[in-house]
Design a protein around this nucleic acid. Structure first.
Lengths: 159, 159
DNA sequence: ACTTAGGGACGTCTAGGGACGTCTTGTGCT
DNA sequence: AGCACAAGACGTCCCTAGACGTCCCTAAGT
């Protein structure tokens, strides 16, 4: 019961499927087949390609993430890291919220000002109503903006 | 100020747009163009066809509903009433929940039994995962079934 | 003044699809 | 006994789309 446990993590024979898969994927990243900033195929796609269980793919990807080659964004996928750059604002609604937040903090949108309507933001970002709403909900929760039925949202005055 | 008010509901001069629209739609229902049990065009579609505001269409439809010609199902649409029959189980998830509930109450699914999985129900009803989940959530809230991660849902024993 | 109509904005619900997260249970190899 | 692997189930989050519900305001007709 102690033998396996005492083995240091590193030196495994390498016959394990998931390390092989990790190597294959790592190669594709290094050769640029999976370019920096783009998304890897999904777990389902990889498990289909390598004809292996989803769990096995996940093990492989976990090692790649530990190596710092990729980052994983739940509900979005895995993204190949760009050289020495932090991945930020992964989701669409975070991008929108971030833009608006910046405008408020810089004063482009002053307290009392009217916030672009959902329709306008949809048009600006070419996205769905729900995504825009999620961005606005985030700002509202932060207390930056307020909404009232029938009228436009507006920037709250700072406390 | 009293003239319009004192007029009984029936004999209006007909200059009002929404009554005209109501008449047109009523005619289509009576002639069978909009068959019983089917859905009317959406508010947006009607307002586009008659080139009026959505509010105006809504007024027209309200009178038709008051006449008992149609029923309205939020997020679904307006349905032409069938002769002397109550409309029941409008939404897909309610149909699924109803079927399962019946099976439990009749004993086809006994306490402790396993409930069909989401995948199986999807296949049975040819619907999305979310719809199935909503049906199951309803039953769970009623205390009829229970779920636990990794394992199948099961029928709760009756109190 | 009141009704009708128009038009815009926000709110909520139903439905569908994709991706990752976690858990459980078998099977086989070592 | 322990690990690797397969397979399946449930959970959560993101995104899109359509429909009705509610509220607010303005313009025009009466």
């Amino acid at each position: 019961m102690r033998t396996a446990r005492n083995v240091r993590e590193g030196h495994l024979t390498g016959w394990r499927v998931y390390t092989q898969i990790a190597d294959r994927v790592r190669e594709r990243i290094l050769t640029g087949l999976y370019a920096a900033g783009t998304s890897l195929p999904s777990e389902a796609a990889l498990s289909a390609e390598f004809r292996v269980a989803r769990n096995t793919v996940r093990r492989a990807l976990r090692t790649l993430e530990a190596d710092g080659l990729i980052v994983t964004a739940p509900s979005k996928g895995r993204i190949v890291k760009t050289e020495g750059q932090e991945v930020t604002a992964v989701y669409r609604y975070q991008v929108i919220a971030g833009d608006l937040r910046r405008q408020i903090e810089r004063g482009d949108l002053a307290p009392g000002d009217t916030v672009p309507s959902v329709a306008e933001l949809r048009w600006l970002y070419d996205t769905s109503r729900n995504t825009v709403r999620q961005a606005l909900a985030e700002l509202q929760q932060e207390g930056l903006i307020m909404s009232r039925p029938g009228k436009r949202r507006f920037v709250r005055s700072r406390e």
